[in-house]
Amino acid sequence: MDQNQIEAIVQAVLAELKKKEASQPTSTASPAPVSTVSGVNKTDALIIDLPDPTTPEFRNAVGVENPMNLEGLLNLKSTTPARIGAGRAGPRPRTKSWLLFQADHGVTQDAIYGKVRQEVLDQFGLFTVQTQVKDKAEYLLRPDLGRLLTPEAKMLIGQKCVKKPQVQMVVGDGLSAAAINNNLPQIFPVIKQGLEAANISMGAPFFIKFARVGVINDVNTVIGADVVVILIGERPGLGVADAMSAYMGWRPGPGRTDAQRDVICMITNNGGLNPLEAGAFVVELIRKILKYQASGVELKLKTSEDAPERPPSDVL
């Protein structure tokens, strides 16, 4: 080791000592290592007050350190919702992008295991019945039970609902309570007023806990409506936890499948079809189903012979 190297080490050690001295409290009598800067407790002075990292501004930020072409990278990023341009720490993701991913997964879990709020149901006078599913775990394991009402549910529906209306609306929690909590207050009045304006009769709406779409078959064994509509929470995607779908069918009953239903999906204010607009589409689709007395594949066949009648909801 030559003299220069020794000198460098000594300087480094002295600098380190000086730093330590500066951060030492003046009184060594203090029992706990409470550091103060000009009389203020340092921990008290610590403030972490973050902006929301889930906003587009933060999502669109580039995490690559020293990209070869920053403008080009931003352009690439703008072409896809995929999480590109995130950068890396060695081979692993950077801290912010990993935490954002966890946040986006977190809201999906809260949505699936969350509950539909009673006041949202009360707002529209919805009473509640349950399928044959007992709890959320069984709901996930046994889709078949989520399509069947309990005898008590059928009895209650029989007591409370008018029979053979043109349209029966039901609401189901499905895989996202957030979808109902966030979208029902906007979509429901639009559908209700739209049907009234079109002179279409609507039965007494109700809420079905632990529902799958196919439960509309069982509902209609009691109601006998021409059209049954279910507004239901969809499986949450990362970062979009409150997407709702509206499924409907012409005279549903045992044995009817998805092929005989129509759907308007991805109803959400978070990057989907907004619930007000969706409500208008639902009304339009109901009118069409009533007119052609068919839904699903059969409706497609009938309307393709009658092209000029296609409302805008056909794109869905």
Binding site: A82, G90, P91, P93, L238
Partner: peptide, 20 residues
Amino acid sequence: PLGDDVMLSYQCTSFHDAAS
């Protein structure tokens, strides 16, 4: 990208994971 498939709406392994 970061394990998030934006079309199939499921999560799997990432570009980072291959390298790691």
